[in-house]
Design a binder for these strands. Structure first.
Lengths: 218, 218
DNA sequence: TATAATTTTTAGACAAGTCTAAAAATTATA
DNA sequence: TATAATTTTTAGACTTGTCTAAAAATTATA
């Protein structure tokens, strides 16, 4: 049975792996877990002995099949709990992350099975992230960044890349949510800010905001 | 913020304190937490520095007000989660203890408030144990052991003292549950086994079974 | 390609919690 | 009330995960 710490390392490595094909760097892991590179090196050695990662000194790390299975299981737990917190306990979606970070480590596969059934087998969490199946299959939705959308195309918001309190509050204040249909009506070349139209309203958003919004592609 | 380990010590000391007025012994704690007396002594020193217990070497330990407040908060969490697991996720009541042991340590008072509301403010858990309030008030129900009941008196089962898998399965098999009205119809003096009547059926139970069943008193 | 800058690893230390073995204190017994 | 038995504490060690500081390796730059 893996410790909470090990589970968090696996999750961090999995997530970093989504944005690169090379070995994940020690520093990247340290940064994402708010720890020091030397601690990461220590842990990587332990993960190697547990056959959870492939690791070559100085050349980064990747998950083994077993490591990935473990990471996906934690991510499944996390996302199911987020759905529960939002749909059943009526948390706002910018409040659930820290709590789900704790709940995700509760060990009981029966608990997760029952929770999944209770929530009626959701496929995405409140942020739009897909929920891996029990078998470790994750359905990656095809999505493109808002800033890549052509002017006057309409598409549905399926994913929000930033789940900081501030950003989620910004979205909530402006009534932007997963499922909202969005059109770009204008782009300002000076700073790449853009005017978007949705729910019969218009809003000017910065490039930074746009970078965090993803729409259904194809 | 207390560690899981500290929370478990406080809970154990609280529970042991219910059945004695003297200082709780090191050995009793060690036994209840499945650890060694020396580990308990070490931990008691730490709890003293945190002002969570009163401790006099060789003469046992008791909780401070702060320690008791902490213990009751964990017990509240535990029992609310048990209600959730049984009522919402449809676990059997002999399956929930280990899972609630993990869930009780999740840190978020808002989570517990919302859960409490979601469960419609229950006052007892599935075993009949009272749920402490947010303020740390616990309503101890007046109850007497089944073996103390007079023949032909009828009273309601309010508490089950043993939550081992085996015992809970025994109860479930025989359709005995919290709220069941029970009458003793006969006692066998040889071994103190007794015949009880409930739900239009009769059952012969051993003294050991009777010792674990408590009925509403007064 | 030599040197500088950066990243990563190693070495050694620390905190939390646990353990074994032995010593000290308390309690039971003769 | 001595002595034996039991309980509790202490001393020292171990594990997990972390850290700082320094060394080693890699990558960037002149």
């Amino acid at each position: 049975m893996n410790s909470f710490t090990i589970e968090n390392y696996l999750k961090a490595i999995y997530k970093l792996g989504l944005t690169t094909n090379e070995g994940i760097s020690t520093n990247a892991i340290a940064h994402s877990l708010n720890t020091k590179a030397s601690s990461v090196t220590d842990m990587l050695k332990k993960l190697v002995t547990k056959k959870l990662v492939n690791y070559k000194k100085y050349y980064g790390v990747s998950l083994t099949d077993e490591g990935e299975k473990n990471a996906l299981s934690i991510i499944r737990n996390h996302r199911l709990w987020e759905v529960f917190l939002v749909e059943k306990l009526h948390f706002k979606w910018n409040e659930v992350h820290e709590i789900a970070e704790q709940l995700e480590h509760v060990k009981s596969s029966k608990l997760i099975d029952y929770l999944d059934a209770y929530l009626d087998y959701p496929t995405v969490d409140p942020h739009g992230d897909p929920i891996p199946t029990k078998e470790g299959v994750i359905n990656t939705i095809k999505k493109i960044n808002l800033s890549k959308l052509s002017i006057n195309d309409v598409s549905e918001l399926v994913y929000v890349a930033n789940d900081s309190d501030k950003f989620l509050k910004y979205l909530s204040k402006n009534k932007i949510e997963i499922g909202t249909n969005i059109t770009i009506t204008d782009v300002e070349p000076f700073d790449n800010s853009m005017t978007i139209s949705y729910k019969n309203q218009q809003l000017v958003i910065s490039q930074e905001v746009a970078n965090n919004l993803y729409l259904k592609s194809e």
